[in-house]
């Protein structure tokens, strides 16, 4: 035990470990807040689709050689989120087909561009890092952390500010429209927040594992709690605890950060499933 504390003390003497922890916890909190809404709106898979768009955008950013990929990745992901969430319902190609089309299309184009215009000699390394997050959370710079903190504050503020409207849009969009509230505007807010979270989460778990970060905490909370508010609070706690423990385990044992966090999320989901079985039996 003393050895573990010594190791932690050593590792936390490096600023990049603190950066990873701060960004990891913030991303986990933001993704859990929106996860409940997305799961209830049956848009669980949108995280996957948008993360693939972000991957494609990252490849495009690599061609331009920008100092910060987010200048291209954020706008492209936000536009895709708006198209998928907002216009998807009225378009000729809608729902899961639109998500699948954009998802695989962006992934293919992204990989094609990465191969044709490599930004570094190690293409497989770049792809590995972008898809699985490899160690990217531990390679964040101070600017990345500031950007993440600012975006997280925007996401949390927007969620708290529009909490009641998001709640209404999540459960009954038609009723919201009938009562004179502009549901489209709030769908747009959800789309933009979703895109921002996806871009942030790519650093933490990579684009292939983002869906897990959005879905698992929400589903875990739904096993035990029933009200929207309690599910969101529980989801946030589960997500933050899993992200924190995942980061600790991975820096201590040398496992990849992203998949360790997702493994922790899966473990908690199973525990909550068992708890819900006991609760049902008692009831």
């Amino acid at each position: 035990m003393a050895e573990i504390f010594q190791k932690l003390q050593l590792y936390f003497s490096y600023p990049f470990v603190w950066y990873a922890l701060i960004v990891g916890l913030l991303i986990a909190l933001c993704s859990s807040l929106l996860g409940v809404t997305l799961v209830l709106k049956r848009f669980s898979y949108i995280g996957d689709g948008l993360s693939h768009v972000a991957f494609g955008a990252m490849a495009v950013a690599g061609i331009f050689g920008l100092t910060n990929n987010n200048y291209i990745v954020i706008p492209m992901t936000v536009i895709s989120a708006i198209l998928l969430l907002r216009t998807g319902q009225n378009a000729k190609i809608n729902g899961d087909a639109a998500i699948a089309m954009i998802s695989v299309g962006a992934l293919a184009i992204g990989y094609l561009l990465m191969n044709k215009f490599p930004s570094s000699a190690n293409i497989s390394g770049d792809v590995c890092t972008t898809l699985f997050g490899s160690t990217s959370i531990l390679t964040l710079r101070q600017d990345d952390v500031i950007l993440c903190v600012v975006m997280s504050v925007i996401v949390i503020a927007a969620f708290l500010l529009f909490y009641h409207k998001i709640f209404a849009v999540t459960f009954d969009e038609n009723f919201v429209r009938a009562s004179g509230v502009r549901a489209n505007v709030y769908n747009l807010v959800i789309a933009i927040i979703t895109a921002l979270i996806i871009v942030l989460a790519m650093n933490l778990v990579g684009s292939l594992l983002i869906s897990a970060l959005i879905i698992f905490p929400a589903l875990s909370a739904m096993r035990v709690f029933r009200s929207f508010k309690s599910v969101i609070i529980c989801s946030a706690i589960v997500s933050v605890v899993c992200a924190g423990s995942g980061i600790f385990i991975s820096i201590l044992s040398g496992t990849p950060v992203g998949s360790t966090i997702v493994a922790a999320d899966i473990a908690v989901f199973l525990i909550f499933c068992i708890i819900s079985l006991f609760i049902r039996r008692k009831a």
């Binding site: 050689g65 920008l66 100092t67 536009i79 708006i82 747009l188």
Partner: peptide, 25 residues
């Protein structure tokens, strides 16, 4: 709503164009 989407797209495009490029030495 289309106007809103166009407006959002225009703002994001402007943000994109404002980004600076710098090649590694």
């Amino acid at each position: 709503m289309k106007r809103k989407i166009m407006f959002t797209a225009a703002i994001l495009s402007a943000a994109l164009l404002c980004s600076c490029s710098q090649n590694a030495p």
